[in-house]
Design a protein around this nucleic acid. Structure first.
Ligand code: FES
Ligand code: FES
Lengths: 153, 153
DNA sequence: CCGTTTCGTAACTTATCAAGTTTCAAATAA
DNA sequence: TTATTTGAAACTTGATAAGTTACGAAACGG
C-alpha cells in the first residue's frame, strides 16, 4: 500500500530548520526533500496553524521555527499534519448488518485501537529536540561534524 | 488512504463457513461479502496453503474449513492472507544519506515497531473461535438466534 | 463420453488518494 | 516598479487493493 510520509518529512524539515538561522524558502526545502515547493507549502501550512513554524512572504521570506524544538512532540507534529490515518489494515465495512461481521470488527477495532494508543503515547513522549540530540550524539561518536549532509541541498 | 480489508473479510468468511456444514462456493461467499468470486478465490488461496481451509472443484465443490476455528489465531489468518502492510504511516525514504533524516527514521521505526509488535501479539492471543463465542454470547443476551443475518445472503 | 459445476489463474480495468504539477494572485522588500 | 516568495486552487500522476473478464482444468452426473 502507498504510505503517508507527511510526518516523516515534516520532522526532517523541522530539524534542518533549526540549524539554519535564516528563513528557508519552500524551494530550498523542496530540494532538500526531493519534492516540490507546492507540497512543502501545503504540508507546512498545518504546522503554521499550530504555531510550530512561521512563514513570511516576499524578499528574504520563507519558513522559520515558531517555537523551540523542545516544545514540540512527535504527537504535536502528527496532529499538525492532519492526524493522518495510521493503519493500512482496515475493516471491510464499518457498519455491517451482519452480526458475525460486527464481531470481527469489534475484535479488530479493539486491537487496532490499543496499538494506536500505544503509538500516540510514544509520540507524545518524544520531543523533536530529542531527535536532534540523539543525532548529534551519534554524529559526535562517529567523529562527524553535524550539519547538512544531503547531496541535493 | 485506501485500506486493506483482507484480514477482516477472511475472518468473516471463516465464521460463516463454520455455520454451514456443506461446502460454500466462491459465488456464495462473494455475494455475502458484497464482492466477486475471483477475489474470494484469490484471497482464500492463501488460507488454503496454511491448511485453514480446503477447496474442492466440480459439482458440489466449494470451500470448507480445514481445521477447527479454535486452532487458528488472528495472527495465523493475518499471515495466511500475505501479512499485509500494517501501517499507512511511512518513511519518506528508507535509506537516506541525510543523517538528520536517519535520526527521524530511527525514532519513527522504533515507535512503529513497538506498535506492530503489540498488535501482532494481540492477534496471536485471539483465536478465531473466540470471535464466534463472543458473538454467540452477545446474540444470546439480546435474544437473537444466531445465524446468517445478511440481506445479501 | 458429454455437459455442468466449480475452482485456478492470469490479464486487464477501476477507484482512491497522497504526491506531484501548474498557475496566478497577493504580499513584501529592494 | 520589479524580483521574490508565500497562498491557494485546480489539475495530473503513480501506486495498488479491489473489481472484472476470460478461459482452462478438474470433478461429477447422467
Ligand atoms: S535533506 Fe537532510 S541533509 Fe539535505
Ligand atoms: S454476510 Fe455475514 S450474514 Fe450475510
Amino acid at each position: 500500500m502507498r504510505h503517508d510520509g507527511r510526518l516523516s518529512r515534516m520532522l526532517h524539515v523541522l530539524l534542518h530548520m533549526e540549524e539554519q538561522k535564516r528563513p528557508m524558502t519552500s524551494d530550498e526545502i523542496a530540494g532538500m526533500l526531493g519534492t516540490n515547493p507546492a507540497l512543502v507549502r501545503r504540508t507546512l501550512a498545518g504546522l503554521r496553524e499550530g504555531g510550530y513554524v512561521v512563514s513570511e512572504r516576499g524578499h528574504g521570506g520563507g519558513w522559520m521555527l515558531g517555537k523551540p524544538l523542545s516544545e514540540m512532540t512527535l504527537r504535536d507534529v502528527y496532529d499538525a499534519v492532519g492526524a493522518p490515518e495510521i493503519f493500512a489494515l482496515g475493516l471491510a465495512d464499518d457498519q455491517p448488518q451482519c452480526l458475525v461481521e460486527q464481531a470481527v470488527n469489534m475484535a479488530l477495532r479493539q486491537s487496532l485501537d490499543e496499538a494506536k494508543a500505544l503509538l500516540l503515547r510514544r509520540f507524545a513522549e518524544i520531543r523533536v529536540s530529542d531527535l536532534r540530540d540523539d543525532f548529534a550524539a551519534r554524529a559526535a561518536a562517529l567523529g562527524i561534524i553535524p550539519g547538512m549532509s544531503c547531496a541535493d541541498a
